[in-house]
């Protein structure tokens, strides 16, 4: 049964049809990769799913509820988490406080004026940090974290309200190859454990081929191909517009 259904999504900027009749579905617990050339419309799709851009036409249903027209924060409350391509964390707070903020919001304690924020939900936050293996860094300032750790912190923050769907736009951008694979492995483990569905975009084919359950290929705003990792890799059209000769990424198992 599909959990997220996207139907006939359109968006154009001026004359440029950035997203042109895109439909797909995502099942519970599935890790779906959205790939495609630069300018294919992936980020535009994401922004429409998350309420940042209004589509010209189309519908996005999460568990039977229409998301189009909702504000990002309301979509978040429905149980959709997201990470950012350029990390967005609270630089002036510690690692654990960053996670606590998400919990405070989730428990609707934002406007409570008679408690100290530093004490609220600290244990829950520590449990989440434990999950991503950053417990020992809990009290470090977020602005001095290594990049890979920042990305993991973002994952913890996105997981704080126990989302059912996670949207990740280029989650491993800017990371070292080893860390990329570690992060996606971690994500895949969490997904398997908690039954979260994930939709992500990525230009690192090592990451995609290793972890995705299914792959969608977007080109010039339209769906070009869809299927298992092997199908997509072998698809000549995809090779032509996107994968190229395969010299810039390894195969799966190449360096495992």
């Amino acid at each position: 049964m599909s959990f997220l259904t996207v139907q006939n999504l359109y968006k154009s900027f001026g004359g440029n049809r950035a997203v042109d009749d895109v439909s797909f579905a995502l099942a519970k617990g599935e890790l779906l990769a959205l790939i495609g050339p630069n300018g294919a419309g992936k980020s535009t799709c994401f922004n429409m799913l998350y309420g940042i851009l209004a589509p010209d036409k189309g519908s996005v249903c999460l568990d039977g509820r229409e998301l189009i027209g909702m504000k990002p924060r309301d979509i978040w409350r429905l149980g959709v988490g997201r990470t950012f391509q350029i990390t967005a964390v609270y630089a002036s707070m510690s690692v654990v406080e960053n996670v606590q903020m998400a919990l405070i919001s989730h428990h609707r304690k934002t406007f409570s004026a008679f408690t100290r924020a530093a004490r609220l939900y600290r244990d829950d936050a520590m449990a989440l940090l434990n999950l991503i293996g950053m417990k020992d860094q809990a009290d470090r300032a977020a602005n001095i974290l290594a990049y890979g750790d920042l990305k993991r912190l973002e994952l913890a923050v996105a997981m704080a309200h126990d989302p059912a769907l996670l949207l990740m736009d280029e989650p491993t951008a800017g990371m070292a190859p080893g860390e990329r694979r570690a992060l996606m492995k971690l994500t895949a483990d969490i997904v398997a454990e908690r039954g979260v569905s994930v939709l992500f975009t990525e230009h690192d084919m090592d990451v995609v081929f290793e972890n995705a359950h299914r792959v969608l290929v977007l080109n010039r705003g339209q769906l070009l191909a869809e299927g298992s990792v092997d199908d997509v890799r072998a698809n000549p059209a995809v090779q032509e517009v996107y994968l190229g000769g395969g010299t810039t990424f390894g195969g799966d198992g190449d360096h495992a």
Binding site: P72, R73, W76, R77, R82, F84, A88, V89, Y90, A91, S92, M93, E97, M101, A102, I104, S105, H106, K109, T110, F111, S112, A113, F114, T115, R116, A117, A118, L120, V157, A160, H161
Partner: peptide, 30 residues
Amino acid sequence: MAHTPFGYALRGTRDSALRTEAIGMNVKLI
């Protein structure tokens, strides 16, 4: 008040409004 959840949320809007909105807080209201 700078150390209450509200104060933290306010600081959050300063550090990253994007993140604050993305964890369900209403930046403008804060």
